[in-house]
């Protein structure tokens, strides 16, 4: 173990931790103000509000039609999770197990939608989706959200598949299983932890995916994050507490899934792909 010795080195270590602490205190303060405000009766010139109430939640539920918005959100997220799993896992299997001509090109094809920011490809994508008539409906939102998530599933799954001994599959083949049966009876059970991790990460990312949904959603296909944006940008029209009540509903929806996801994955994986096996 390397120990820091000089005073300057110790001072530096302190400075680094102080910086981290400052960041976290402000981050938690930022989240806490939203929660406190959502329960406040009036809050102007004091540290804490004058009184507390829960009525803003009922108000927000009616004003923003949160019931409908939540249903749409779960429909979109559910469809995105299932379809990106169905498209992504088999593709990841082929990428992990076979060497074929053009594989580097295919890999590039899957990397691009993850590296190019949604706002850059979102506008041409929305244009095409409007042209074919998909945008404005829930399917337009689902299709747009699948563009970054399918490659994400592939990139997360490749190292998981590479860890599995290929002799397992050979044995299944010897016993006469076709590709489909080998998948359902051998691979999927072995890969369950990896698939679960990848799909939970897709879920968390899709709930918070603003740009793509914003560009393709119509009045009936808004998800929670787009409805929240609309409420925040129209501040002044509604009571701030009511907007914050909705923000708290959004936070709970997102963070509950995040906590579940973190039981299966390392936080680092939310931004990077899984470590090489």
């Amino acid at each position: 173990m390397i120990r820091s010795q000089t005073a300057a080195e110790r001072l530096w270590v302190w400075a680094v931790w102080l910086l981290v602490a400052f960041f976290i205190v402000n981050l938690l303060g930022l989240i806490a103000t939203v929660v406190v405000n959502s329960f406040s009766t009036r809050w102007f010139t004091t540290w804490l509000p004058v009184g507390f109430t829960t009525r803003w939640y009922a108000a927000a539920w009616d004003e923003f039609q949160l019931g409908d918005v939540l249903i749409t959100t779960f429909e979109v997220v559910g469809a995105v999770v299932v379809i990106s799993g169905l498209l992504g896992v088999p593709a990841a299997y082929a990428m992990a197990r076979r060497e074929f001509r053009g594989k580097r090109f295919v890999m590039l094809l899957f990397l691009l939608p993850m590296v190019v920011p949604p706002i850059t490809f979102g506008i041409p994508l929305a244009t095409v989706l409007y042209k074919v008539g998909a945008a404005g409906s829930i399917w337009g939102v689902i299709l747009a959200n699948l563009v970054p998530t399918v490659p994400f599933v592939i990139l997360v799954m490749i190292p998981f598949i590479q860890q599995i001994d290929p002799r397992m599959e050979a044995a299944a083949r010897v016993f006469g299983a076709g590709t489909f049966r080998m998948f359902t009876n051998v691979l999927v059970p072995l890969l369950t932890p990896g698939i679960l991790a990848a799909l939970l990460l897709v879920l968390v990312r899709t709930i918070a995916m603003f740009e793509l949904t914003f560009f393709t959603a119509g009045p009936t296909s808004q998800t929670l994050v787009v409805a929240l944006y609309a409420a925040v940008s129209a501040a002044g029209v509604r009571a701030g507490q009511s907007v914050d009540a909705m923000a708290v509903v959004y936070m709970i929806t997102t963070l509950a899934w995040l906590l579940l996801a973190l039981r299966f994955v390392n936080p680092t994986q939310i931004v990077t792909r899984a470590k090489r096996a």
Binding site: V34, A247, Y250, L255
Partner: peptide, 15 residues
């Protein structure tokens, strides 16, 4: 990262 830019914006407007 998980909460996303919209919620951070609302939080910052308050905080």
């Amino acid at each position: 990262i998980t909460l996303g830019t919209v919620l951070v914006a609302e939080g910052m407007l308050n905080y």
